[in-house]
Structures are given as structure tokens and as C-alpha cells.
């Protein structure tokens, strides 16, 4: 019964990526349009602009959510690719644990960066 749950999370992660990556792309590349509408940041790649976003709680939360969703979505896809190599049960188990720990490490590391930028 675990497979449908993993697949549901995969789809949910895809939706989260679609929303937050959309916001990210909008802020980064549609700055002229957004600022003319009174939202967004001028020159989003300027250090001062990056700093403003890093100090905003909304962005810290979205960074962490996007990081988690992207990691899960990507690693679930990688798991599928590896499983298609007709792996045995023990190899499947090893792949599951390996991807889980690598994903967890990257999430903690990336999450720390987002939180540290907010706090410091």
C-alpha cells in the first residue's frame, strides 16, 4: 500500500513546484512587468534585493517548501529509473534508503541555508 502514497506525494510535489517555481520565475524574469503593476522587486539579482527576500518570512518558507518538493520529486523519479533496471528486492531497499538519506542531507543543508539567511 506504500506505492500509491509515494505516487500521491510525487504529484503533490509537482504541483508545489509548479506554483513556487512559477513565483520564482516571475520574480526573476518578469520584474519589469511586476514592478509596473506595483509588486515584485526591481533588479532582483542585486544583492540588496536578494537580502530583502532572504529576510522575508514568506520567502524563507517558500524556499524550504520548494526545496523539499523538488528533492522529493526528483528523487522519486530517480528511484523509478533505477527500479526499472529490474533490481532485486534487496537492491530496491538499498536504493530506497540511499535516496532517503541523500535527500534528507540535502534538505537539511539547503534548509539551514534558507533559515540562516533569514536569521543572520
Amino acid at each position: 500500500m506504500r506505492e500509491p502514497t509515494l505516487w500521491i506525494f510525487h504529484i503533490l510535489a509537482g504541483i508545489i513546484i509548479l506554483i513556487f517555481l512559477g513565483i520564482h520565475m516571475g520574480i526573476m524574469h518578469l520584474d519589469t512587468i511586476l514592478t509596473s503593476l506595483g509588486v515584485g522587486y526591481k533588479n532582483p539579482l542585486n544583492w540588496s534585493s536578494v537580502l530583502i527576500r532572504n529576510k522575508a518570512l514568506f520567502f524563507t518558507i517558500t524556499y524550504i517548501l520548494l526545496l523539499g518538493a523538488a528533492l522529493y520529486h526528483g528523487f522519486y523519479g530517480l528511484r523509478n529509473i533505477l527500479f526499472e533496471l529490474s533490481l532485486g528486492k534487496s537492491a530496491q531497499k538499498a536504493v530506497n534508503w540511499l535516496l532517503f538519506f541523500v535527500g534528507l542531507f540535502l534538505f537539511i543543508y539547503g534548509g539551514y541555508a534558507a533559515i540562516a539567511a533569514y536569521v543572520i
Binding site: 506505492e3 509515494l6 523509478n80 527500479f83 526499472e84 530496491q92
Partner: peptide, 9 residues
């Protein structure tokens, strides 16, 4: 059907 080799592949 709720196995890794099910519809999820």
C-alpha cells in the same frame, strides 16, 4: 496493484 511494478511505473 499497490506494488512497485504496478501502474506507478
Amino acid at each position: 496493484l499497490c506494488v512497485p511494478e504496478g501502474p506507478w511505473r
